[in-house]
Design a protein around this nucleic acid. Sequence first.
DNA 1: AAGCAGCTCAACCGCACAGCA
DNA 2: CTGCTGTGCGGTTGAGCTGCT
Length: 341
Amino acid sequence: MGRAPCCDKANVKKGPWSPEEDSKLKEFIEKYGTGGNWIALPQKAGLKRCGKSCRLRWLNYLRPNIKHGEFSDEEDRIIFSLFATIGSRWSIIAAQLPGRTDNDIKNYWNTKLKKKLMGMIPPSQRKLMIPPFSSSTPHSYLVSPSSQLSSLPSSLYRECTTTSFYNPPSSSNSSSRSSITGLEFSPSFPSSATLLTDSSSLFQAQEGGFLCPIQYDSSVKDIVVNNNNNNMLVFGSSERSDCSYGREMGVKQEEMDFQSYIPNGFEGNHHVQRVGSSYSNSGSCDNANNLSGCFGETDSSVLGYDLEDVKRLISNSSSSSSLLFTDESNKTEDQRALYYF
DNA sequence: AAGCAGCTCAACCGCACAGCA
DNA sequence: CTGCTGTGCGGTTGAGCTGCT
């Protein structure tokens, strides 16, 4: 037996609200408030509506200061950023956009932004991003180096990291983020961040055609070997489930995942910096400013946190083959698409 | 002008969760 | 602790609108 319905379905009106109903509801709430009980409200207000329907109508349409109409570029950026970070948590996203409702944003995403985003990705790549992803079949994306990415003026990404949108930080420095996951970064990073959440840059990225899928393992190794990089930045951690337990098993990170992708002997002949492992605090980037390449894998503990720093390094890199990849198999197609611009 | 397809968005549905008795 | 109830949320639906043929 299911739970009892919230109202008598037979005796409630459904469908679009009439202006009379709107004014009844508005007047009642302005006069008496909701009384903390939406179920009882329609009867008190003389409406033949379900309480849930009244609540929805009020929140999405009648409530004061509701903003209707076109979304601004800034709002687009916020939605893109938050969606990339938290996915379809529309109420949380709406909380960052005064006057917008979760329903509005959801509709806007589904009808406009999603298409905008997917339109930036060529069909040949799109199909590689279609779920289901399994941890045994990771997909990766090659990101160009990025002079093109170096001029993106926004502090958005930093402000929208996993924790900050719940409790906006008073400051947005690296140390406040470090306390979130225990990772540490060198203060030698430039304080003016170059970020990747500007929607116009998304288009640039696509038009430039430098986003393309690659495969793990052999192809990654090939790139590493063939591009003659002398300096590499390695960040992130394992994509394999066994690696996730490396720490508990007492296995060194280097043995667990780094060696999986870097050929034997590579490290001995190249300068390598690691940063942002999910189970290693080895990330000192003091000497990473002259990178000729970035090589990394992001995982859930890293994304939305130090990805920004990694991207900044990529943008500062002189390499022609910076590499950023992930499996992130638990993310939606839209989310995955967003991470790699 | 009619028919059709695609799009938009208000509204609904059902589930999860929190609070309370 | 358990069960009930109200609330909030995300996914989905479908009526109305728009534009194309």
